[in-house]
């Protein structure tokens, strides 16, 4: 606890210190950036185009952004503050509040300058994202001597809350009889066994033919097309690696054999007998690939 209080005290010492002094906009206010903004946001306000165009007022902060080449005019104090928070494990950042006042419109050709002060640093707060400190800055944006607007901005610098690790999905049981099937899945192929005596396809993989008892077989790649033959919706019990409810379906393949799997592309409660599906392969982690069935109709 002592170190927490100590940190908060050190953080509070930054209140009132400058975060940026005489920063300058990377570009003068200009029509192309205004147009790109309007295009991205779907803003068709005619005030933002033509010979008397003004910039959308909400672009205020955009003119101060450092972009990929970084900020100009940022003070050592602000970097020190962020560094102190990083060192305390608060390495993530999220913006939470933006309060702007627009004193005069910005127009193409205006060259902005800005000064930012660190208004406040909060005590340690615990949020859904993790625990950290809110940092509030206030930026005055000017064109020459005239105030164009003020921009108060609050960020949360936080240590991400640990997420409970989801256990890996259970592995399929691979044995001597069915190893060929899972090798196929790894290569993103759905392989069926086929009796070389009577040509009957079969699944799951077995040593002998259900139809004629023949012991010799080869493989054939399934087309991947099928329909839902039957299904259940799993609600309970929950297994840690799964997110119930989910549908488990018995798929009848075009080749006539049936196979179990998850149906994707529709919510669990929209799965119905007869739905047409096509196989896809889903990698659940580095070691596990499973066939799943996407609804096609």
């Amino acid at each position: 606890m002592h170190t927490d209080e100590d940190l908060t005290e050190r953080l509070k010492a930054f209140e009132g210190r400058p975060a940026a002094t005489e920063g300058t906009g990377k570009d003068p206010v200009n029509l192309p950036m205004i147009r790109h903004w309007c295009e991205a946001l779907g803003d068709t306000n005619p005030a933002y185009s033509g010979p008397d165009a003004i910039a959308p007022p909400t672009m205020l902060q955009a003119w101060t952004m450092g972009g990929l080449s970084g900020h100009t005019g940022r003070s050592a104090a602000y970097d020190e503050l962020l560094g102190l928070l990083d060192a305390a494990g608060c390495t993530s950042v999220v913006a939470t509040d933006c309060e702007q006042e627009y004193d005069r419109p910005l127009r193409p050709g205006d060259e902005i300058t800005f000064d930012t002060v660190i208004e406040s640093v909060s005590d340690r707060k615990t949020t859904k994202l993790g625990s950290g400190h809110f940092v509030t800055t206030r930026t005055d944006i000017r064109v020459g001597p005239d105030l164009a607007g003020t921009h108060r901005f609050r960020i949360l610098k936080y240590a991400p809350a640990a997420r409970p690790e989801k256990p890996p999905r259970p592995r399929p049981v691979v044995n001597r009889d069915n190893a060929g099937f899972w090798e196929g899945v790894r290569d993103r192929k759905l392989l069926l066994q086929r009796c070389t005596a009577c040509a009957a396809p079969r699944h799951p993989w077995l040593p002998g033919c259900n139809a004629c008892g023949g012991l010799d077989w080869d493989t054939v790649e399934a087309s991947g097309e099928g329909t839902v033959y039957s299904y259940v919706v799993m609600h309970h019990p929950p297994f840690p690696a799964f997110d119930p409810p989910y549908a488990v379906a018995l798929i009848e393949l075009a080749e006539g054999v049936r196979m179990l799997g998850n149906v994707i592309g529709v919510p669990y409660d929209k799965v119905r007998i007869g739905l047409p599906v096509r196989v896809e392969f889903r990698e659940h982690d580095d070691e596990s690939t499973l066939p799943v069935w996407r609804v096609t109709g």
Partner: peptide
């Protein structure tokens, strides 16, 4: 947040 801010601005002036 800048996009959200811009969308709120657009909503109002629309």
């Amino acid at each position: 947040i800048l996009t959200t801010n811009g969308l709120v601005g657009r909503y109002l002036t629309d």
